[in-house]
């Protein structure tokens, strides 16, 4: 068994690491993404204020511009405050937390569901394949944001009124995940059908391994490359989908605002000249979506042997 250091060395010598070290775009994107992720994860520790603790809020602080002292309280906020006197920097950090959590959880959900169904469809073929792929065919005809909206509406209708705000985050994950699984299923099914006829699968069959063990133990590691690329690009899509739904008022509730909810709130004040309430969450969202997108693009090129 290789020691950890040896494994690390192998990883650092790999083609992927080599391509990474030569791509300034990938390195910048990773740095930005890592900074945003750290800010999100550590928000309760490093955010200057807890914007959702009513005890620390002072309505007099409302609409303080960035880097200026408030005319009543004399307090200064790096990125200003919103209508209720909440520090914009802190609301962004907490919002980032929710945006990232929903994005990552939705991608994981979509990937697990899609990969499992794709493996089953590709490996067994027959009626399993027909059922899964017909559903995928119908679903892929419609834009995924529309499907996410519909699932959100249905799930909202099914949850009791008093639990809706609490459930909203989970409903969001469910609806975005269910709207994206098709892409994983299609890719994995195609790759599985190719892998199925290879010798190592035949060998595993002869060794009397169960179909499930072959699928998840042998075929899955060999079809993970494209799934990784899909997952990275899917993360950007999921983050934007979440922001769009929340902006439209059918996503994260005002009690747990994501970046999209903050932008929705900020738009009302744009016309009065209080631009910072909208501007900073919007820039954060852009940085997040763009860095993940660039990373996904780079990963796709780096893992594609034809482009080397």
């Amino acid at each position: 068994m290789a020691s950890f250091n040896q494994r690390l060395q192998t990883a650092l010598d790999s083609d992927l690491a080599f391509a990474f070290k030569r791509s300034p775009v990938a390195m910048t994107a990773t740095t930005i993404f890592a900074l945003l992720a750290i800010a999100a994860v550590l928000a309760p520790l490093i955010a200057p204020y807890n914007p959702f603790d009513p005890a620390t809020l002072n309505l007099m602080n409302g609409f303080t511009p960035p880097m200026e002292a408030n005319e009543f309280t004399g307090q200064t906020f790096t990125l200003g405050t919103d209508d209720q006197g909440r520090d914009v920097l802190s609301t962004i950090m907490y919002g980032l937390r929710i945006s990232l959590f929903v994005g990552v959880a939705a991608v994981l959900f979509a990937a697990v569901l899609g990969v499992t169904l794709g493996l089953l469809a590709g490996y067994f073929g027959g009626w399993v394949d027909t059922v899964v792929m017909r559903i995928a065919d119908v679903q892929i005809t419609f834009p995924s944001i529309l499907i996410a909206m519909l699932i959100f509406g249905v799930a909202k209708g099914l949850t009791p009124v008093e639990a809706r705000d609490e459930m909203a985050i989970w409903v969001l994950i469910l609806s975005i995940g269910l709207s994206e699984w098709v892409y994983y299923a299609r890719t994995v099914r195609g790759a599985t059908m190719v892998e199925k006829s290879k010798e190592y699968v035949a060998a595993a069959r002869l060794a009397n391994r169960s179909p499930l063990a072959i699928m998840f133990g042998h075929v899955l590691p060999n079809v993970m490359g494209p799934v990784l690329v899909l997952g990275t690009i899917g993360l950007a899509l999921a983050i934007i989908a979440e922001a769009t739904l929340s902006y439209l008022g059918v996503g994260a509730p005002p009690t747990q605002p994501s970046l999209g909810t903050l932008i929705r709130v900020g738009q009302d004040y744009l016309f009065n000249g209080e631009w910072w309430i909208l501007f900073f969450p919007a820039v954060t969202l852009l940085a997040l979506a763009l860095s993940v997108n660039l990373l996904g693009d780079w990963l796709r090129d780096a893992l594609n042997p034809r482009l080397r």
């Binding site: 950007a236 934007i240 922001a243 769009t244 902006y247 439209l248 932008i263 738009q267 744009l270 016309f271 631009w275 909208l278 919007a282 969202l285 852009l286 979506a289 763009l290 997108n293």
Partner: peptide, 27 residues
């Protein structure tokens, strides 16, 4: 970059430039 921008941000940006700042078009 335009493809990575969410549609609603593009709309808000256009409103800000052409309605709020320049006042040329209704918002």
């Amino acid at each position: 970059i335009g493809v990575s921008l969410p549609t609603f941000l593009i709309g808000i940006l256009l409103i800000y430039v052409f309605s709020v700042q320049l006042g040329w078009l209704p918002s």
